[in-house]
Design a protein around this nucleic acid. Structure first.
Lengths: 345, 345
DNA sequence: TCCTAGCGTGAAAGCGCATTCAGAAAGCGC
DNA sequence: GCGCTTTCTGAATGCGCTTTCACGCTAGGA
């Protein structure tokens, strides 16, 4: 990137016939500068198409105006929604957002955090991190803690067992319980669950909540009725296919995310089962597209953009010395046409 | 972010009892360093949880390992797909990706480019930019050209009239023509088009191609049958609603993007029109979700991830002095169930 | 044994900027 | 008109790092 030299502040100063210091002050407006000098500097900068070198600014003690957001996959609608909120909040705070996808590779997650540390990013946002894995937690802490000691802000969406960080937590457990109540109220008594990796706190919480909700109606969910698969549309498809192949007697299937539910819906359609006539299907998250499915999906709506805004706000707000804050965001059950009341059997 | 001072290379050097220069060399591995010294340095770095300051590295002439990607909206599946490809390619090249959404605000687009220039990003990728607007083009050029002069790489997805940049161009025109041929072959003779903003080259190209394809079958598309709306799901919904309200005699509707087609599909469903029995509907892009719609959408498939990979590769590959390269990516018509043959009337 | 390469090392320069410090210019009261 | 304070300006310093540059060391040939 160093073909021809960049235009520097010194060039501007020379062009405007003032000292380097004056040029800097004129451009930043920190101190009063005689107006004719300022004019000259501004004109020179304009004419030379000068852009300050952010690295030099940062080195010289200027503010670091960038935050890093690390998620599993930006192309997942769940994260896309959150990242929208993050960007909006960042925009207001005048921050530049760096987005990165780890594709669920802990190694890559660590690597990205390290890079952000190197950039001296003013904040790091972890969205939907949270494996329950001792070794990974240690490695993560080894990056995060020195960063925080250096004054870096860290905030996460979802739960973390060990990290001392601010967090925005969707109420996965209560949301799933709420959904379970709704479904049992519709008369369902036999369920199957399409789960993502059980190492993720999000999955664990949603299953636990769902179980608890069912228990209130005296319904049990056997481990056998939980199928684990990848956290993707194809994962949902695979899990549903397995369920179909194995034969099962549930009247309602709960996919722990909408994305998985979409795959499940496709698998059901391919198998000639119609939803909700033959079987009811519910998801979680309320990503935008599920309204447009046929049938529109019953799900638990999470305020995704708001989640993103909140986590950004937490990271921006100064909290040195204070204990870590937790913001809980409730979900609301949205009943659409993919589930229907059935007669109790 | 300057709470406690950061660990610097000097600290490491002191701890390891070597000079600053040796510490630097040991860490970077650029030059031979006696192995016991290297060990000492590495151990010290590890112990102090040292992370090099990327700003200082950049300033001192180290490589700038970051590329910026600017798109309209990361949460749009079209861009999400492309950004996936970009990230994969960036990963291989050892680059950090900074993603930014402009939400179709030219001002913000310029601002982001300026920030990336300031960061001395090694490359800037413009995805789906391309307004046909003189003033905007001038402003854009005023940012891009100095950046390129400074050695920065620029590559774009889609067409640009004025910029001298490498580009990956989906064959919008030919793809749309192909689609038109397919539809006329199915017997359709009367069409309506749901268009995005006519200032976007993508929209212009797709409409033109569609017209050309129709013309081959002797079919004309009146300006009156083109409805312009926002480039979103809701835009498609609004455009379709307008068409329904106004009354129209088309047997087939072409939405210039799948996202708009989704909105159109919803509007049709709400109006009690069934697809494809009452009316055929086709889109463009083949974003993942359209397979899962009911009915699955006929569309023109664009290799989104590949688009992203290619544009990244263009930006990485060194091309000083050479003329700007153009990579054309063909689309393929995918006929699904949202369109059906009809009797010629 | 002495001289010359050659390899490693440390001191120091400099990347582009913000900022401190001291000095010049200008404004004020007397 | 003199001495004082108040503005504003310019020279110089340092941020943390990479990279010359020059020197000391060891190894090899004569």
């Amino acid at each position: 990137m160093d073909d021809r030299p960049h235009v520097t502040l010194e060039d501007v100063a020379r062009e405007a016939q003032v000292s380097l210091a004056t040029a800097s002050r004129a451009l930043n407006g920190t101190t009063k500068v005689r107006s004719d000098l300022r004019e000259r500097v501004l004109a020179a900068a304009e004419q030379l198409a000068y852009t300050p070198n952010a690295h030099a600014q940062a080195l010289a003690g200027g503010a670091h105006r960038t935050v890093g957001v690390i998620c599993h996959d930006v192309s997942d609608p769940y994260f896309a929604g959150i990242s929208r909120g993050v960007m909006r909040a960042a925009d207001e705070a005048g921050l530049l957002v760096m987005l990165a996808s780890t594709f669920r590779d802990p190694q890559r997650e660590i690597a990205y955090i390290s890079m952000l540390r190197a950039q001296r990013a003013s904040a790091i946002l972890l969205v939907g991190s949270g494996f329950e894995d001792r070794e990974w937690e240690r490695a993560l802490a080894a990056e995060i803690e020195p960063y925080q000691r250096g004054g870096g802000q860290v905030a996460v969406v979802s739960r973390h067992r060990t990290l001392r960080v601010d967090s925005v937590q969707p109420e996965n457990r209560e949301g799933a319980a709420q959904l379970a109540r709704t479904l049992t109220a519709q008369g369902h008594r036999r369920f199957a669950v399409l789960a993502g990796p059980r190492a993720l706190t999000t999955v664990v919480d949603r299953i636990r909540g769902f179980r608890e909700g069912l228990a209130e109606a005296g319904v049990e969910l056997a481990e056998h009725d939980i199928v684990e698969a990848a956290f993707t549309r194809d994962g949902g498809h695979a899990a549903m296919s397995e369920l179909l192949a194995r034969g099962f007697d549930a009247t309602c299937v709960f996919a722990v995310t909408d994305v998985m539910a979409m795959g499940a819906l496709a698998a059901l359609r391919e198998a000639g089962r119609s939803v909700p006539e033959d079987i009811s299907l519910a998801g979680f998250d309320d990503i935008p597209v599920v309204r447009d499915l046929a049938p529109p999906l019953t799900t638990v709506a999470l305020p995704l953009e708001e989640l993103g805004e909140k986590v950004m706000e937490l990271a921006v707000r100064d909290n040195r010395g204070k204990r870590s804050r937790i913001l809980r965001m409730p979900g609301t059950v949205v009943v659409r046409e993919s589930t229907r009341p059935i007669a109790d059997t």
